[in-house]
Nucleic acid binder design. Structure first.
Lengths: 147, 147
DNA sequence: GTTTTTGCAAACCATTTGCAGGGTC
DNA sequence: GACCCTGCAAATGGTTTGCAAAAAC
């Protein structure tokens, strides 16, 4: 769950045009509690009768991704998903049960990457770290609890 | 490029049946120098007239993945790809130019993950680190060199 | 002989694209 | 007013599935 205002501010500051469909999708994204798929948004948009089409949802997700307001992640299952996030942070811990994600800071990763580069001889341009597990709240739940 | 024998040994030791199509796909995978897509295999299988169908290639990739002989990775572009790898190693540096990948050891990552778990309160069950850049050989090439 | 695996073609799913109309700057 | 954005529907590309025949154990 993210403040929808941040999306609007960022959209406004960008070269993209501020349109009703984009506002609608941004609000939808802000409402998501955990990671979500494009299909989730399409379905919710239809349920709420927002009148935005599939294509626009995909296109808006691209825009939000370009603005670093949303990041596309790959779940352990291989499915694609998105998470809303703060610009500048680029790694997440994702809860396998509730889907909630949390941004994480560098935490020494930078040094690890540097070490790997040195040892392999690669020039490392980009890296992605994704963590999966159970968030605190979900750990506290009885093992069989379903969402 | 990986020893094809390792695939056969692992297949043999598993509960999966050893069949000609699986041997063929395993050999194909062993021949790949870098990461490869399912489409690559399909095309090569057809070029070599191996007589294995699309479906079997996908199914065999699943088998090899289950045996940890192959790992599915997600390129920065969002495309899916596979890399042959040693069981037990689960991180790679992938060259963006030639596609070659190299397994990397823990390199302090374990400690980073532990730190993140402590700080976020998550119980981290799984993690994935993927590095992208240029391998030594490709760095040495003139910038405009094409594959 | 039973169970797994295969190839084929069709089905499926997520994502992209072409285009004419409408909205934004 | 020029250019960007939208919805729609059709196209696309990758992956899965149903099924009867073939192969492995």
């Amino acid at each position: 769950m993210v403040d929808a205002g941040a999306f609007l501010t960022a959209l406004d500051a960008s070269d993209y045009r501020m349109t009703a469909p984009r506002r609608a999708v941004a609000a939808l994204v802000a409402d998501q509690t955990g990671h979500f798929s494009s299909a989730d948004l399409v379905e919710q948009a239809r349920a709420r009768r927002l009148g935005v089409g599939r294509a626009t949802i995909f296109r808006t997700l691209d825009v939000l991704t370009a603005l670093d307001l949303v990041e596309r992640i790959d779940l352990p299952t291989g499915e694609h998903a998105y998470v809303a996030c703060e610009p500048r942070h680029h790694h997440h811990v994702v809860c396998s049960r509730c889907g909630r994600s949390q941004d994480i800071d560098d935490a020494g990763l930078r040094a690890v990457v540097r070490g790997i580069a040195r040892r392999t001889g690669f020039r490392v341009d980009d890296h992605r770290l994704e963590l999966f597990g159970l968030c605190q709240a979900c750990q506290a739940l009885p093992p069989e609890a379903t969402l």
